[in-house]
Amino acid sequence: MVERTELFHEVSTAGFDVVEKPLSAWEKLYDNGAVRKTALLAILAGAWELYARWLGNPLLVPTFSATVGALFASVASGALPRAAVYTISMLLKGYAAGLAIAALLTAFATGTRIGADLLETLTAMFNPLPSIALLPLALVWFGLGAGSVIFVLIHAVLWAVALNTFAGFRSVSPTWKMVGQNYGLSRASYIARILIPGAFPSILTGLKVGWAFAWRTLIAAELVFGVSSGSGGLGWFIFERKNQLLIADVFAGLLTVILFGLAVENLIFKTIESRTVRRWGMQA
């Protein structure tokens, strides 16, 4: 072993190059995801405009400016808002009904073993079945109209939500379950105050997936309806304008579908996420 003397150093308190320095405005701007994505969107819109002008065929690809113009005109005439309101109200009805049935099914599955088996079997069968495939059958059962659309919407929402909620309940930490039991909670408040918040990350995933399925299904269903009926949702709006060869209006309709999808995903679900699972540290 080597004998060494003990060493002591003075710690300096000044003379460092940078200890803490605010970032420049440009650096902060570039760190902001929203700013970067907005810039990308602007570039894409510019590319679209250039391509459409170069192509010079508004029946195939209208320019970006023509699409925006058609969008404003359709909004001003009230046709597009009417279609959007119709679609949204239909979607909310179907979504709410789907959630209610999913809640019942999950409650049954949580309470009994046979209920769990039932839920697993039904989900395994119906989850891979695209809802739109049920539309012909729905038309036979419920006729043309809201009934059929709501039926396929329920199918779109139900399985994703029930499956995720049930899986979430199952994966709730056993420690939280024991903590809940320790307080002598009743069955109902045990579910409401331990299981649901504990499973919230999965429940939220189910809600998002259910919403996305329902939105796609609804637009597709309205396109089919467009062939035979006059119920006027966004899908119908797109279908009708295509028949009239108003392609800029078709693009405007598609843009509206995209905008609604983005708004729900980024405003509603993101807000719920940042106020719940992110704040609780249950999701990175």
Binding site: S173, T175, V179, I194, P197, G198, M282
Partner: peptide
């Protein structure tokens, strides 16, 4: 377990 507190 550290996760015995309810995270919400």
């Amino acid at each position: 377990e550290f996760d015995q507190l309810l995270p919400w």
